[in-house]
Amino acid sequence: MGLSPYVPKPVKIVRIKEETPDTKTITIGPKPFDFIPGQFAMVTVYGVGEAPFSICSTPSDNNLQFSIRKMGSVTTAIHEASPGDEIGVRGPYGRGWPLGEMRKRDILLVGGGIGFAPLRPLLLHLLENSNKYGRIAVCYGARSPSLLMYRDEFGEWMERGVELYLTVDVGEGDWKGNVGVVTTILDKPNLNKAETIVCTCGPPVMIKFVLKKLVELGYSEENIYASLESKMRCGIGKCGHCHFGGKHVCVDGPVFRYDEIMELPRGISPF
């Protein structure tokens, strides 16, 4: 990288995959940097703008992947891009999931909709190093079955030992699984609750109710982590957009522990 930390590095789009009707997973490569699961990168569509996205590929992959929902101008431009196009990327930024804490412990991942993106690199990393960690359970919910991301990987995850629980707010088609919000399946995983590390990401309202329910179920507050989102312009704590109550989401987050989340001001805090 050159003089300024704000200048992205041009990388080619390798592949684009339609994940759900409104979300595409783009693969770019070769990856310009190493990262920890849970960290994010700033992705630039040249001439349009820049936005922060969670990296959703495993750290051992030679490429980088981002699952991107069509929302604003940058995401729309990414959806309109095709393989071979050049986009800019800089990172990795922020504090990732606490891998050190997870050693030898059971791990529960709770995701909602597109909020599974930052959990996927963690899950894949845990599976690749499964001898270092305890049991792994995943509770994943979406508004409808078609909005569940990474569906084609579910089988492989389960084969490799993941306890996977799915739920949707509204069933459709041949959906035979659970119907209800993600908190309705949180009691299903059979884990050592007091010792389990929980990582969650999703819309703020989901995080709020998931955190409440987890504490009710007996998970320990000091073991619960959530990844938050915010508008960002720099990713390195200078532009001020993600500054809330003394914390920069881009530097001190996006992964926060339960007690840190409780101290954030209302609005950015899901509570």
């Binding site: 630039t44 001439g47 820049e50 604003g72 508008k231 312009r233």
Partner: peptide
């Protein structure tokens, strides 16, 4: 705040002052 635009043979990004008083300051896409 940053802003991107097109020039004849290049893509450019500018940055400039922003204010936290603006309702757009923290609003996400």
């Amino acid at each position: 705040e940053t802003e991107d635009c097109l020039e004849k043979d290049s893509y450019v990004r500018f940055r400039g002052w922003d204010t936290c008083i603006s309702p757009l300051f923290t609003r996400m896409a």
